[in-house]
C-alpha cells in the first residue's frame, strides 16, 4: 500500500504513531501491537528508501514497540508467580499517546488565538520619537554605517532556493534607473526597502552599487535622522535625471 509520508507533518514518533492509528482506524485504548509495529516499521522503511535520515527517537520507538510486542507474546512471569495485578505492557504507550494528542490539540487551539504580529497589531512607536532627542534634522550617513547596513542585509538568511532556468543579466545602470524611477514617485525611500527588497544577493549587491553610483553622480542623497537611525534615500531635483546615468561600461562593471 502507498504511504503518504509528509515529512513536514511528523514531529516525532508519537506523531507518526497517532497518524497510523487514525489512518488504520485502530482503537487507541486497545492498540493491536503486532499491526501497529508492522505499520510503523514499514513507515520507517519508506523514510529510509527516500534517503531520509531517521532521527534516533524514531528508532527508540521502534524498539519500544518490539519490546511491548514481545512482552505480550511471552507469558508474564510475575502473573504466574503471584497474583499481583498484571499491567498491560501497552499502558505507558497509550498514556504517552493520549498525552501527546492532548498537547497537539492544545497547540492547535493556541494557534487559533489572535496572535500579536500575525492577526492583531499594535502601534509601532519608534524609539527616537520617544527619546525626544531627535531634532528632525537629517545628516549625511557615514560610510561605515552604510557598509554596516549592507552587512546586515547580507547576513539575513537567503530566501528559500528557487530553481532558476535562465540567468538574468543584472545591470548596475539598469538598476540605478529603476531606483530613480522609484524615487520619482516618492521624494524619499527607506534605504532598506530599496536595497533589501526581498531579493537575492546578486540583486542586492547590484542595487547597493547602483545606489552608490547614484550618490556619486549627485542624483540621490543618502541621509539619516541620526547615527544608527534608519537610512533614507532622497531624490535630488534634477531632470531628466535618468539621462545622466552612463552605461555599465562607463561605470566599469563589466
Amino acid at each position: 500500500m502507498a504511504y503518504h509520508i509528509d515529512l513536514e507533518n511528523f514531529k516525532g514518533p508519537l506523531d507518526l504513531l497517532l497518524h497510523l492509528i487514525k489512518q488504520h482506524e485502530m482503537d487507541i485504548y486497545d492498540i493491536p501491537i503486532a499491526e501497529i509495529t508492522a505499520q510503523y516499521l514499514a513507515a520507517l522503511d519508506t523514510m529510509k528508501s527516500l534517503n531520509l535520515e531517521i532521527a534516533g527517537e524514531f528508532l527508540v520507538m521502534a524498539s519500544t514497540l518490539l519490546h511491548i510486542k514481545s512482552r505480550l507474546l511471552l507469558p508474564s512471569r510475575e502473573a504466574a508467580d503471584n497474583d499481583e495485578e498484571e499491567v498491560d505492557p501497552r499502558e505507558e504507550l497509550v498514556h504517552r499517546l493520549l498525552e501527546y494528542q492532548k498537547y497537539k490539540e492544545a497547540a492547535q487551539s493556541l494557534e487559533r488565538l489572535p496572535l500579536l504580529g500575525r492577526d492583531v497589531f499594535v502601534r509601532q512607536i519608534a524609539d527616537e520619537a520617544m527619546a525626544g532627542n531627535d531634532d528632525g534634522e537629517l545628516q549625511p550617513v557615514p560610510l561605515f554605517e552604510l557598509v554596516e547596513a549592507l552587512r546586515r542585509l547580507l547576513q539575513e538568511p537567503p530566501p528559500p532556493p528557487v530553481h532558476e532556468v535562465a540567468r538574468e543579466r543584472l545591470s548596475v545602470a539598469e538598476r540605478a534607473r529603476q531606483v530613480l524611477e522609484l524615487l520619482s514617485r516618492r521624494p524619499q525611500l527607506p534605504f532598506l526597502d530599496v536595497v533589501g527588497l526581498g531579493c537575492d544577493r546578486e540583486l542586492l549587491i547590484v542595487t547597493f552599487l547602483a545606489v552608490l553610483e547614484l550618490a556619486k553622480l549627485g542624483l540621490v542623497r543618502i541621509l539619516q535622522g541620526q547615527h544608527h537611525a534608519a537610512i533614507w534615500l532622497h531624490a535630488v531635483e534634477q531632470r531628466p535625471a535618468a539621462a545622466a546615468i552612463p552605461v555599465d561600461e562607463a561605470f566599469g562593471y563589466c
Binding site: K11, P13, A55, R96, Y103, K104, A106, L110, E111
Partner: peptide, 29 residues
Amino acid sequence: LSRAALETLAIIAYRQPVTRADVDYLRGV
C-alpha cells in the same frame, strides 16, 4: 510559530513549571 514550537509552548504553558526532560518525554523528541 512552527508546529514544533507551538506544541512545546502548549506543554510549557499548560504544565508549567516543567523541565526540558518533561517536554522531551511528552513530545517524544
